[in-house]
Lab assay of single mutants.
Amino acid sequence: MLDDRARMEAAKKEKVEQILAEFQLQEEDLKKVMRRMQKEMDRGLRLETHEEASVKMLPTYVRSTPEGSEVGDFLSLDLGGTNFRVMLVKVGEGEEGQWSVKTKHQMYSIPEDAMTGTAEMLFDYISECISDFLDKHQMKHKKLPLGFTFSFPVRHEDIDKGILLNWTKGFKASGAEGNNVVGLLRDAIKRRGDFEMDVVAMVNDTVATMISCYYEDHQCEVGMIVGTGCNACYMEEMQNVELVEGDEGRMCVNTEWGAFGDSGELDEFLLEYDRLVDESSANPGQQLYEKLIGGKYMGELVRLVLLRLVDENLLFHGEASEQLRTRGAFETRFVSQVESDTGDRKQIYNILSTLGLRPSTTDCDIVRRACESVSTRAAHMCSAGLAGVINRMRESRSEDVMRITVGVDGSVYKLHPSFKERFHASVRRLTPSCEITFIESEEGSGRGAALVSAVACKKACMLGQ
């Protein structure tokens, strides 16, 4: 009897593995994704193909990295998701002549009506938060230079001027797309009239992360975010950046690689679950690469896999709870928690219980395998993109072996128990001629924006502006 049951459990697990095998990517698959990513990057950089390229390769006008001589107080704003952060950054000489960066910050959550109302409502709310922060720190009387981390696709015309191309991540505030974001912020500050600010720089969160990590390690020339969304930036040779005049030196390019796949480059790798996630998203047909990796989508992918296993009578005796059938019910943090389970399955059992399920031991094991399959594919897909960037940098610099540091931020990278190990191992397999160091950014977005502002202020002083 026991043997029969054991055989049935083994057969069930084997069927589960057959279904989950769809998520496995072979090294040849990853090399294919990497080569296609490089081709799209090239198209994004070139003037004649930029418009139709899915990977936009947006110039950021960040050319210099901090040298350690900029000092002063800077205000930093960070808008990239449902939370908005205001930070005071003091850049100065530390002990023994070292450079020191001290920060104080406060988080504000953005109400739904500000995210989806008008641009005026959104930026009025942001300036209200700045006003509140300055009151708390008794700094209303000071006109501070301000660095703005704005983590949406922007076409820069200068370091302090950028046109919002399109909202992502659930934002829909009308009247912002096609307009200068810094102008919208300046107008809102003017409307309030109770404080003055000098907006000197606007950067993407990947750029802010790279600059913040450069402060720790001067070989950091790539910034990457794996959180709600997924994106990367890197220092490109100016001669390859056709959208900006000049051939000397390097400029940081914001790849906006989340949109890779929007022209069909990933079609052969998309599964039924991916198509369902895409169809029910706020932007169907867009940001397809990001939807395979980002935390906004990972939990939902797992939920759809679990429903398939229920329908195949391989999980929960073929019956799903009402909660499990509800879109968004299986949160991405559950994926991390399930994979963090120590082996007694308590954590998995508790999560499934909150979803109205009474799982068996085998159910718990199957749910864990589903989570591992989805998150491992995410790590491997992400590795193909980064390997594409790094191999490109090595080739354009004609280096036999390139040493490089990548600064990384984002909740999936930082909080998932195995993502970074799987990701690092896969990147290294795909970049055999590179020695890569990964560092995690601390308060990256805010500190990085302030350091970019410090560079901009120093330049302005040198130019006598």
Rank of each mutant, 00 (worst) to 15 (best):
R36V: 06
V408P: 02
S64V: 13
V427C: 09
D113C: 12
A114D: 09
K190S: 15
N180G: 06
R403L: 10
K15M: 07
R5N: 03
A53S: 13
L309F: 14
R275N: 11
G193D: 07
G448W: 06
Q286G: 10
V203F: 04
Q239C: 13
S453L: 14
G223Y: 00
S398T: 04
K296E: 08
R43S: 11
R377L: 00
G170Q: 15
E248L: 07
L301G: 05
M462L: 13
E52D: 07
L357I: 04
S441W: 10
S76D: 03
T361D: 08
M402K: 08
E372A: 03
R5T: 13
H141G: 04
F419V: 04
I436Q: 02
A201H: 00
V277W: 07
M37F: 05
L324P: 00
E17A: 15
F74M: 05
S373F: 02
T209I: 06
R422F: 10
G117W: 13
T326W: 09
Q106R: 03
V241P: 00
L386K: 01
G299T: 05
K39D: 11
D341N: 02
L309N: 04
R369H: 06
N180T: 05
T228E: 05
E322F: 13
C230R: 03
M251L: 06
I130F: 06
R403E: 13
Q38V: 05
G407E: 00
F419W: 13
M139Y: 09
L314M: 08
L288R: 14
R422M: 12
V367I: 03
V207R: 00
G295E: 15
R422V: 14
V89Q: 03
C233S: 05
P153V: 10
L309C: 03
E245Y: 05
N180S: 13
F152C: 09
L164W: 12
W167S: 14
Q18I: 11
D247C: 04
D274E: 12
M87L: 07
K190V: 14
M107D: 07
F269T: 03
L276N: 12
I293T: 11
G68P: 14
G117S: 06
S383R: 00
G356E: 06
R46V: 09
P145M: 01
F133V: 05
H141R: 03
R377I: 00
Q337N: 04
R327K: 07
A379V: 06
